[in-house]
């Protein structure tokens, strides 16, 4: 085993870390290279993405934020198929990331649209039915995994 990890902490070592400098804290350069369109433009990535609708009031959703449809798809959606699809898939509470996978749209786009839909009342945030502390969750996850 030739490689040893502590060498990676020597930032002056020639050629080291070429692939992953940002993990070691050099974030600034990388931020110039890669911009997340939805984060940068507050939900608008371009003409074929969410579009300039309802930017204000759109909130940034976490991947695991839970949302549920507050109404069934209606005539509002006839020119907005992606909203209709989201409403149909969110009839039961869904995480944003699952919603994105189900409706086959990029995560950032679903985040942006869902944010607008929360703002206009089409979607609602939902919290877990039963409050559980972090410890309770960990213990339950351990039991659940053991019984797989």
């Amino acid at each position: 085993m030739s490689a040893e990890r502590h060498r990676r902490h020597d930032r002056n070592e020639p050629g080291h870390d070429r692939e992953f400098p940002q993990i070691l804290g050099a974030h600034e350069d990388e931020e110039e290279r890669f911009l997340r369109p939805y984060a940068v433009d507050a939900g608008v990535a371009g003409p074929d993405a969410a579009g300039p609708r309802g930017r204000r009031g759109a909130e940034q959703l976490e991947m695991l934020s839970l949302v549920v449809a507050a109404r069934t798809p209606g005539r509002h959606e006839w020119l907005r198929p992606e909203r209709e699809t989201i409403l149909m898939h969110a009839q039961r509470a869904r995480t944003v990331v699952e919603l994105a996978a189900e409706v086959r749209l990029p995560l950032g786009q679903v985040r942006a649209i869902a944010g607008e839909m929360l703002a206009d009342g089409s979607l609602q945030h939902c919290g877990p039915t039963r409050p559980l502390g972090h410890s309770d969750i960990l213990h339950a996850v351990l039991v659940g995994l053991r019984s797989l």
Binding site: R33, L35, R36, P37, V97, P106, L107, G108, Q109, V110
Partner: peptide
């Protein structure tokens, strides 16, 4: 496994 994708704008140096 489910799959989604994230779009990124890659700006050149």
């Amino acid at each position: 496994p489910l799959s989604t994708e994230e779009l990124m704008t890659e700006a050149s140096y």
